[in-house]
């Protein structure tokens, strides 16, 4: 089977510092790959060249086996790559519907915004993702962390993402909301999406992911199947920067 995404030999440097140093990772349909590492290990930087926020210095990106160039977030969206950022990337002064459709607004025949239809669509998808959501006419600054997260996820899901990038999706959430996100990830996997999950939390990665890629100082330590390693093994990879002895052979 062709991988959905292949990041091949990617390097990105800021000034003299190699933030990402010849890293290769792939992702298959229906799979969740966790990216683990300390702050500054390069995992966010690596993934941002897939989401179009940064441009790689060298290396190659393939989607469904085809080489692509991603210069900006618009290119990424055109390839059905959706990103849910750690900072959520919502415009606080706008309401849920405006944020959900930001950059892809529905319009009437005359080219004007079709607010009523956007709100109706927002109500429909939020009814599925977060049935308790009510604040459709309030700016998202008035929402709780979980509500904001569900708006961000709704945005990715609504536009038929094939590849989903989630940057610490549960960092700001309570236990119940975390559970909701976990169920959602399971649902999206069944639909055949490929998901990159960036996280600090080893427990969450072991729970939600199929494979984990561990990075340290911009380099790839290794990629392991999460059911073949223990949480301690993963921790060792993050801290020591080497694969566990059991797999080394």
């Amino acid at each position: 089977m062709t991988p959905l995404v292949e990041l091949i030999d990617i390097s990105i440097a800021f000034g003299g510092i190699k933030a990402v140093d010849h890293v290769s990772v792939d992702l298959y349909p229906g799979e969740v790959v966790g990216l683990l590492g300390h702050n500054g290990a390069g995992k966010s930087t690596l993934i941002k060249c897939l989401s179009g926020a940064y441009r790689k210095d060298s290396g190659e990106i393939r989607i469904n086996g085809r080489k692509v160039e991603i210069e900006n977030p618009r290119d990424a969206r055109a390839l059905n790559i959706e990103t849910i950022y750690q900072t959520l990337a919502l415009a606080d002064n706008l309401d849920a519907a405006a944020n959900l459709f930001l950059g892809r607004e529905l319009t009437t025949g005359f080219g004007f915004l079709d607010e009523a239809r956007m709100e109706a669509e927002t109500r429909r998808i939020m009814g599925r993702l977060n049935p308790n959501f009510r604040k459709f006419n309030a700016p998202v600054s008035a929402l709780s962390g979980g509500q904001r997260q569900s708006v961000a996820i709704a945005r990715a899901v609504y536009f038929n993402a094939k590849i989903l990038i989630m940057d610490e999706p549960t960092a700001a959430l309570g236990p119940q909301e975390t559970q909701m996100v976990a169920e959602l990830i399971g649902e999206l996997k069944r639909q055949g999406l490929g998901i990159f999950l960036i996280d600090h939390d080893i427990h969450a990665v072991k729970e939600l992911c199929d494979r984990a890629a561990v990075m340290k100082n911009g380099q790839l330590v290794g990629i392991v199947r999460v059911d073949e390693v223990s949480e301690d093994d993963l921790l060792g990879m993050i801290i020591l920067g080497k694969k566990p002895d059991t797999l080394a052979a």
Binding site: A91, L94, A98, L102, G103, F112, L113
Partner: peptide, 29 residues
């Protein structure tokens, strides 16, 4: 007023003002 409330241009102006990074990441130039 119509531009501000009923067009993409107006929507993007307010989005960029509320969170410039979000606007950029949403594919707005």
């Amino acid at each position: 007023t119509v531009v501000a409330r009923k067009t993409r241009l107006g929507r993007y102006i307010f989005a960029a003002g509320g969170n410039p990074d979000a606007a950029e990441l949403s594919g707005i130039n």
